[in-house]
Design a protein around this nucleic acid. Structure first.
Lengths: 196, 196, 196, 196
DNA sequence: GATGAATGAGGCTTCATTCAT
DNA sequence: AATGAATGAAGCCTCATTCAT
């Protein structure tokens, strides 16, 4: 993505974009305002990014990458798949609760992208979905999850359920603690997954 | 909604909007192209709708209203809550699979709306969420669902999970049958909900 | 102007237009809002008036005609030209002070008309200018006004001066009595006109 | 006013606007046509001006500023107040007679502005009114003008009278020399102002 | 690499006017 | 005569992108 050596400026733009998109939404954010927020000229943006959409995708990719890496690192030390699932959900919720900007962009603005862009986003989400699948597989292997699980379907169900909880919390105005929903969410997952 | 007598023209515009939004997306659809698709003049649009956003919300409201009514009617004859849940999920999936236009608008384009608009959408979704809650309550009352269910959370988990399955199917290019996912989805739900 | 027998509706539209123009200005007033104010359908307007501009001109003509007739009647009983001048100025100021709607239309909105329209307005003002000229002539004949007056120029100076006083009073927010300016205005005129 | 470095382009737009407004009138002039006349792109207009109205006000301010400065400079060398009055009137008439474009904009188009705009215009005219008042005061101090003059009223009468003479000349199709009216106008003023 | 003035396509919306009823 | 739904031209303005400096 970064076509330039000046990695600092690249990140300055990315951070500025996160802020601006979160405040005004993607379609209502001008490239100009991102440039101003980042302290660079309008034209400079186009040295680092092909166009406006690429900025949004890049913001998402970077942050999601961070979330994935954090989760991956944390589940290394998890004792079992159920524990790992708990870690993922906790991380997912707390990360977004603690970075409202990011939550807005992820849950609201990113959904405003073009179809082609959504494909790119889908690509970026894949590793996360795969991470979840890995945990499911681990559970099956451990014997703690049902062996007849449709992994491809279930990983989506888990991701989709968490995603909707975040969106609802955001739309409701963050009146309650998102992180505290993790408990119930995971319990629900485990009830559905546990081998009998 | 219709501020005029000619209800036919109102629906012609609504249907045209559904088609055009599905093809090009909301932000990339011009009011002009909707008018052309509907076979009316540009200005005519503004006799029936306040602005472009109101068209999108109206499209959604009408179609979602239809989905809710269909589901509500069908679960009347369901023998129990589990059966009702199955009906809802089947209806949800099949309705969207059979109306690709609608699916695009609902899953993709509607997410591109302004924050204020999303609030309006949230209002429209509420009856659906309530419908789901009713089924959950019914299950608890019947003794088939766990009595310690957090209804407010669970109804979101179910809706969110279904929603994500639809979106993923759409994003994947509808390579498989969406309706066939209902079986697995419902099974997953029931596993998580069933009283022990 | 009135192309129809229904003189009541004609005047209803004229009065409505006066109100609406005064409130929103000519260019910001829609034919539709005049129709609503008059209690008729949009299309009805076009039975009585050729287009929007003709409404404005007609409003002005009618009201100015009334002002001229009032002044003409009053100066019949004036003892001399100076008295007549006083009457004209008093009538001019008091009429506009007591009909703020009319003042707005006359001093503000009418100036927003097209060039062609202004010609038409000029035609309507002519009788008023002529009325003033008549008084000047009378003064010259009486021997009370300078015999070397350039009547064509002086009649304009008088009209222009009064007009500007009205506009300034209006723009200033009518913070003082317009009618009370008549005294000083007339005194100024008489000083300039009186034969030595 | 100029928000950019390229002062030339700023003036190019201003001059183009003067031409176009004079030809077609403010409301009938499109921003697009001003851009074309100025030889810039439509969007460029909005780099230098907030909106269409600001162009009109700016045109007026610049030209009036020039008129005021010219008059102010010329009356420095006037021997007395009467001479100064003559200078102001001559300058006023000749300036507008020699710049027909400006006359149209000032006398016709500027009157087509919104109420808020007229306030801004009023602010711009103030220095001119003040300039006239200064001359009146000078005359009173010199003992050549009546000491009982209501300065606030008289300055308006003078401005209004001159203004109306210009407008009438314009509306009549400039069939006679405007500058030649200065003589009579000033004579009229002096008759009314001179101390006895 | 960085700038930011300039571009110009394109969008939403208004509204004067028409005309079938 | 009266209606008011329909028309569609026209306008203001935004903003993603380019390019000369």
């Amino acid at each position: 993505m970064a076509r330039s050596k000046n990695i600092e400026k690249y990140h300055a733009i990315l951070n500025a974009a996160l802020t601006v998109f979160a405040q005004n939404g993607f379609h209502r954010s001008s490239v100009s305002s991102i440039a101003k927020e980042a302290g660079v000229a309008d034209g400079t943006i186009y040295i680092y990014f092909k166009n406006k959409e690429e900025i949004l995708v890049s913001v998402f990719q970077e942050r999601l990458g961070y979330l994935i890496e954090t989760s991956r690192a944390r589940i290394q030390t998890a004792t079992d798949a159920k524990e790992a699932l708990k870690v993922i959900c906790h991380t997912h919720y707390s990360e977004l609760e603690n970075h409202l900007d990011l939550a807005y962009v992820t849950q609201i603005e990113l959904r405003q992208s073009s179809f082609d862009m959504r494909k790119a986003i889908g690509q970026a989400v894949k590793p996360y979905i795969t991470l979840i699948e890995g945990v499911l597989q681990r559970g099956v292997d451990e014997g703690s999850f049902r062996s007849d699980l449709d992994l491809k379907l279930t990983r989506l169900l888990l991701f989709g359920a968490m995603d909707q909880v975040v969106t609802s919390w955001l739309m409701a105005g963050q009146k309650y603690s998102l992180t505290k929903q993790a408990e119930g969410t995971v319990q629900f997952f485990i009830n559905g997954l546990t081998a009998k």
